[in-house]
């Protein structure tokens, strides 16, 4: 799978709630952030968890989110961030 995003790109985490083994935390689904770095390409955990090959491998990114946007009641520096690893198939480009 080709890497679609590059550092600095604005992305949004898909806001879906299927079943299975998923490495995208609930708290970050539906939120917008920025690609911090591309981490490489790794077996898809949703497949690996079910005794399948994990193919096609998925590009993995570290995505940076502003805390005050993730938690409406966030107390702290307005520039505080949370960075989460998210697989490409859980990301959408902010501009479609």
């Amino acid at each position: 799978m080709e890497a679609r995003f590059k550092p600095g790109d604005a992305v949004r985490v898909r806001n879906i709630y299927p079943l299975g083994h998923i490495r995208t935390p609930f708290y970050i689904r539906g939120h917008s952030g920025v690609i911090e770095r591309f981490c490489g390409t790794f077996g898809n955990p949703e497949e690996l968890a079910q005794q399948r090959s994990g193919e096609p491998k998925q590009p993995l990114y570290r995505v940076r989110f502003l805390q005050k946007k993730v938690w409406p009641d966030y107390q702290g520096n307005p520039d505080d961030v949370i960075e989460v690893e998210i697989f490409q198939h859980w990301l959408e480009g902010e501009n479609g």
């Binding site: 935390p25 490489g40 790794f42 520096n77 505080d80 961030v81 949370i82 690893e85 998210i86």
Partner: peptide, 15 residues
């Protein structure tokens, strides 16, 4: 201090 920015890293996958 409030001026110091915090970066939290959630290790969700292979890093």
């Amino acid at each position: 201090a409030q001026e110091i920015k915090i970066r939290v890293h959630d290790s969700t996958a292979d890093m």
